[in-house]
Design a protein around this nucleic acid. Sequence first.
DNA 1: AAACCTTGCAACCGCATTATT
DNA 2: GAATAATGCGGTTGCAAGGTT
Length: 277
Amino acid sequence: MGRAPCCDKASVKRGPWSPEEDEQLRSYVQRHGIGGNWIALPQKAGLNRCGKSCRLRWLNYLRPDIKHGGYTEQEDQIIWSLYSSIGSRWSIIASKLPGRTDNDVKNYWNTKLKKKAMAAVAATGSVAALAAPATPLALSPAASASSSVTSSSSGDVRFATYPSQQQQHHQQGLMRFAAPQRTTKQTELAPVTELTQLDVTGGGGAWASSAAELEDDVFLPGLVGGGEQLFPYGDFFGGMMQDRALELSACYFPNMAEMWGAAASDVKPQGLCNTLT
DNA sequence: AAACCTTGCAACCGCATTATT
DNA sequence: GAATAATGCGGTTGCAAGGTT
């Protein structure tokens, strides 16, 4: 089925927003709200913009509770741990960082945090420096109860060491079983009906479905490029993940089944562990 | 001083999902 | 239930600003 464009690209303004446009949009939304219809909003607000563009501008820039820049170490750790756990689900990750948008978190990861992780690896041969906070974090009892995370039987995620038949040595891997499918592009993914093993050495997105797809990720191959030299057993997803990132992930998603549910349905769980926020 | 390179980030694009008719 | 419209998301691009040669 074809799809009509959301607006006539030839007749609407594109590119950077002017301060006047920002003010127009801001004042309109503050007076009337978005009214549940972004497509109609530009006309009502007197803006010669695509509704989609207005929505993006509001959500990523004009919203009053937006924070820009100045990421804290804690935020770094949260992004890092959640990225390691659920991959590039930026909206979910951003939902755990008050005031941050998915676009902002994504940009921050791509431009800074990824390099920070690489630098940590280059300097120490490990990501432990990134994983270990300068000051201890106050984790909730739920977060500390990692045993409940690793022992649930369905909709679960865990990190483990397992033997690689191809390479004849142990690798750290992300295992996911009986979990809901990713909602986007799910036609590209085989249904997860049983224990699924993903080779982190190959690239390590939790959602990768093939070796070719794994190779697309430029971060993890670089990060794990040293193989066992850089990441002997338990150093990367084993050491860092089990000790810190998984704990952090568990804090934000104490019920891992809920996390997978959120990943699958885009329902953002509220009221989970807030001790890091 | 000019040219080139790198970085950061706003904005766009295409697709999947959800809601509505 | 099908068709269509609207929304949300993740990947990518374009460009300005700053840095380097």
